[in-house]
Design a protein around this nucleic acid. Structure first.
Lengths: 206, 206
DNA sequence: CATGTTATCTAAGCGTTGTTCAGATGGATC
DNA sequence: GATCCATCTGAACAACGCTTAGATAACATG
């Protein structure tokens, strides 16, 4: 993370677009999503409130850029989790745990990622080609073998993704704290829930 | 739905709290969550912008009231779905379909429900006692029989709930439209995804 | 019935937000 | 060196959440 904070103040501010996105992520991490106003971002970047409009059409477009960075980071996290495991079933669970962990570690960013995806015609790029979504599908495909149909594969991926997203959003609910403690921590809790989801039921049975 | 819209304008406006919540739901349904400002609610209810503050501490508390109505409505929807089915497994699927359908039919309200629950110490009442959450747990308990432990039951409920919530949030993504059409409609799509989730894997195997 | 108390509502205002626009600034091009 | 164009600023607008002071009407008490 190369923070280019208040290092003097250049003439025209070399690369504002990037500085703005970084400022946004900084605010997001420290003060939460509620504090993420365009003016605050401009303030953090050290420019006037109108400056961002020369780089982004509106606030939404800035958030889109932030969200995109989030998807890239999630991509990397899933890639790492997939490579760190050998067994098919464990790989699937690890993928799920990595997904939820990412959401838990970057809650505000995760929120922005989905808020931006909603009400858009297409899914974010990262869920289409070479992205996180495909990583999940490929993992499932590898585990399921050749006998699985294209439709079943797609459905299983969607099911797994929805389960992960649901758990990612809800695992922060404080009502679950006691259960987590009972199971021995966050990760044990996540694994237990994923185990009960039985994403592989379809293929285990058939 | 007894709308008490512009029927003259009383002296002190008989029951503003209720009128405000109804106005909020009306705005939510027609203009979406982005248009839901306190001032807009007051306008819709025909009172001054400051009037709501005599009934709700702040905007968040108004949304809490709206969210509460949402949970009650979801409760009823799940109750109906549970009674309309006899077989255990089908009952579980129907419950899931009813849940997601509710979210799809009231997307803005559903959003408010979860936005209000987040960052709160406790889950909403409706997820605790006699509420939707318990309906799911009871259904699972009935299907699983006596041999299931308390922890497994809780985990299975959480798993099912997360899957439902995830699908509820994502089933609106337009990227899935083609798959939905291929499967023959929204409900067929939902059932297919739930089938691939295999919520009962744990009990089917054991 | 007159009086005072209390709940409710309005009017006006503060600080903040997203966004626009006219004008200043300065790097790049001829 | 004059011109051009991207970039940035300052000021402004409407709308927002929220507060305060004061009006209004229901209610309770004498």
């Amino acid at each position: 993370m190369t923070l280019a904070q208040p290092e003097a103040r250049p003439y025209h501010h070399g690369d504002l677009s990037r500085a703005l996105v970084e400022a946004a992520r900084r605010i997001l991490e420290t003060d939460g999503p509620a504090a993420l106003s365009l003016r605050a971002v401009a303030r953090e970047a050290g420019v006037s409130p109108a400056a961002p409009y020369h780089h982004f059409k509106d606030k939404g477009q800035l958030l889109d850029a932030v969200a995109h960075e989030g998807w890239v980071a999630l991509d990397a996290a899933l890639m790492k989790a997939r490579q760190d495991s050998d067994d098919d079933r464990r790989r699937m669970t690890n993928l799920g745990v990595a997904y939820v962990t990412f959401a838990r570690d970057n809650p505000a960013l995760y929120r922005v990622m989905y808020d931006c995806s909603r009400d858009k015609d297409a899914l974010p790029d990262q869920m289409k080609e070479e992205g996180a979504y495909c990583q999940v599908r490929n993992t499932i495909a590898h585990a399921a073998g050749d006998g699985v149909s294209e439709i079943d594969l797609e459905l299983a991926t969607i099911a797994a993704w929805c389960a992960g997203h649901g758990l990612a959003e809800m695992s922060g609910f404080k009502q679950f704290e006691s259960l987590k403690a009972l199971l021995g921590g966050e990760e044990a809790f996540l694994k237990a829930v994923f185990d009960h989801l039985g994403m592989f039921a379809k293929f285990d049975r058939g």
